[in-house]
Design a protein around this nucleic acid. Structure first.
Length: 264
DNA sequence: ATACCATGAACAG
DNA sequence: TGTTCCTGGTATC
């Protein structure tokens, strides 16, 4: 399931496999309105990701906006699609080099560049984008009385961080989630930004969220072995110190932290 | 067959 | 703050 690293990986795949070609566009599930008919046969010009959003720019200023939400997924078939689509397929994009099927998205809308800009205007900097502006993130949280655990999940503060990276980024910096943005030190704010950049990039590279440092992996976890993925997220005990993990509902999402490594 | 759960977010009030 | 919408994998009857 998708945080920002997943979306950037999908964008890269779509870029590589689908851009530059006229695509067959269909909606096997039939729930894409007239979008499929409008896009069918158009050339895909470029693909862009920002946080958890993806835009596919087709010729003629037709822009497909996709947000996977909690359940959405892309299934890509470089060798050609299976005869029967798997599950409920909202959109199928088919080109000479491959096919990709979208199911379960929170958003799948056809618009134009202005619509795209309107979405971007609501988003904070994306740590994965080269044009990201860390100062926006730092200034916003430096002024905020809201808990840093809420700020990291707020896509208008930083785009692409979800529940797993929230938990892990706070952990590696020893920050209790309920401390407010303004009461953090400048060094802590900067370190948090650096951490989400590093963790998200690692996620793009590997396709998994693995935040536990190699030096803290069990020695048996060599090549191929999965090793430990997280320090606190969905864990019973802290991977670093063994203290029972605190877990509570924070604005409707589970929040995980180590009471010992992340003192309040 | 059914229940429950999840890495998300918009909307109402 | 609570409700609603997406889907599908796993657990439970």
């Amino acid at each position: 399931m998708p945080e920002g690293h997943t979306i950037h990986r999908h964008a890269a795949t779509h870029r590589r496999l689908l851009t530059g070609h006229p695509l067959s566009v269909s909606s096997p599930q039939g729930r894409f309105g007239d979008g499929a008919a409008v896009l069918d046969g158009r050339r895909l010009e470029r693909v862009e990701a920002w946080g958890k959003h993806e835009w596919l720019w087709f010729e003629g200023d037709a822009v497909l906006h996709v947000h996977l939400g909690l359940f959405g997924r892309w299934r890509t078939y470089p060798a050609g699609p299976p005869p029967e689509p798997r599950g409920q397929v909202r959109v199928r994009l088919h080109g000479p080099l491959g096919t990709t099927d979208l199911s379960g998205p929170t958003a799948c809308e056809l618009g134009d560049p202005v619509d795209r800009d309107a979405v971007v205007a609501r988003l904070g900097p994306d740590p994965l984008r080269p044009d990201a502006d860390p100062e926006r993130f730092l200034d916003t949280i430096a002024r905020s009385r809201r808990a840093i655990g809420l700020l990291l999940m707020d896509q208008s503060v930083v785009a692409g961080v979800g529940n797993v990276y929230r938990a892990e980024a706070l952990f590696v910096n020893g920050i209790w989630p309920l401390r407010t943005g303004r009461e953090l030190g400048d060094d802590e704010r900067l370190a948090l930004w650096d951490t989400v950049v590093r963790q998200l990039r690692a996620g793009v590279r590997s396709g998994r969220i693995v935040t536990v440092d190699r030096s803290e992996q069990p020695s048996a976890a060599g090549r191929g072995a999965r090793g430990k993925a997280t320090y606190v997220y969905k864990r019973e005990h802290c991977w670093r110190c063994g203290t029972p993990i605190a877990r509570w509902d924070l604005a409707g999402r589970w929040c995980y932290a180590c009471p010992s490594c992340q003192p309040a």
